[in-house]
Computed example of a mutant assay.
Amino acid sequence: MARKVIDEPSEDVVANAKRDRAARRNPFARFALFIRQVIAELKKVVTPTRKELLSFTAVVLLFVVIMMAIVWGLDQLFGWLVLYVFGTAGA
């Protein structure tokens, strides 16, 4: 199973953002703050293990195959209904 990660910004990032917002820094300083916040958030990212990655991939592929089967089935059904209602072009 995936590790539980709390999706909340750390207190120091929030405090820095509030202080910087109150100071109304120039655009370059705001951009630098943005980059620092992005890096802080990226440090929180947890990469899945190989087992988790294979499991997630299998689930996604299985879901896609099931959805393809449903769409194919509906296409066949509607095609049959259209032929039943309107008949063939040659008749």
Rank of each mutant, 00 (worst) to 15 (best):
M1K: 06
V5A: 06
I6L: 13
D7P: 12
E8L: 09
E8Q: 09
P9W: 06
P9R: 05
V13Q: 03
V13H: 02
A17G: 04
K18R: 13
K18Y: 03
R19C: 01
D20G: 12
D20M: 13
R21Q: 02
R21C: 01
A22W: 00
A22E: 06
A23L: 06
A23Y: 00
A23N: 05
N26F: 01
N26C: 01
N26W: 02
P27K: 01
I35L: 14
V38D: 01
I39L: 05
E41C: 09
E41D: 10
E41H: 10
L42G: 04
K43H: 10
T47V: 07
T47S: 08
P48Q: 01
P48H: 01
T49C: 00
T49P: 03
R50L: 09
R50N: 08
K51P: 02
K51R: 14
K51N: 10
L53Q: 13
S55F: 04
F56M: 13
F56D: 14
T57M: 09
A58S: 10
A58V: 04
V59N: 01
V59L: 10
L61R: 07
L62D: 12
L62F: 14
F63H: 08
I66R: 07
A69S: 12
I70L: 14
I70H: 07
W72Y: 08
G73N: 09
G73F: 05
G73W: 03
D75C: 09
L77Q: 10
L77W: 11
L77N: 06
F78S: 14
F78N: 09
L83F: 08
G90F: 12
A91L: 10
